[in-house]
């Protein structure tokens, strides 16, 4: 299935771009992370410290073990610093 993947803040900077479409068989967010890490050293650098990352599935915050079933957009970013 195809998933749009978005990156924000230093995750975006390390990966080198903010958005891409991925063809994946991953069933969960963490499986998708494994697919991404295999894409190259820039992805490895972005995803090396998984506990330091947050994810959203279709614009809703979720855990790394959340299902990708029916999900069209996954976003990865550092802990948020609003306010």
């Amino acid at each position: 299935m195809q998933v749009t993947v978005l990156y924000f803040a230093w995750v975006r900077e390390r990966v080198g771009h903010g958005q891409e479409t991925i063809e994946t068989t991953a069933k969960t967010i963490s499986e998708l992370v494994n697919d991404l890490r295999a894409k190259g050293p820039e992805y490895e650098a972005a995803f090396s410290d998984l506990p330091a990352l947050r994810a959203a599935a279709d614009e809703v915050l979720c855990d790394m073990d959340a299902s990708l079933d029916g999900v069209r957009t996954v976003a990865f970013f550092p802990p948020m610093t609003g306010g």
């Binding site: 915050l61 970013f77 948020m80 609003g82």
Partner: peptide
């Protein structure tokens, strides 16, 4: 807003 709003 500090910890759950998607701002960086």
């Amino acid at each position: 807003l500090k910890s759950r709003a998607p701002f960086w």
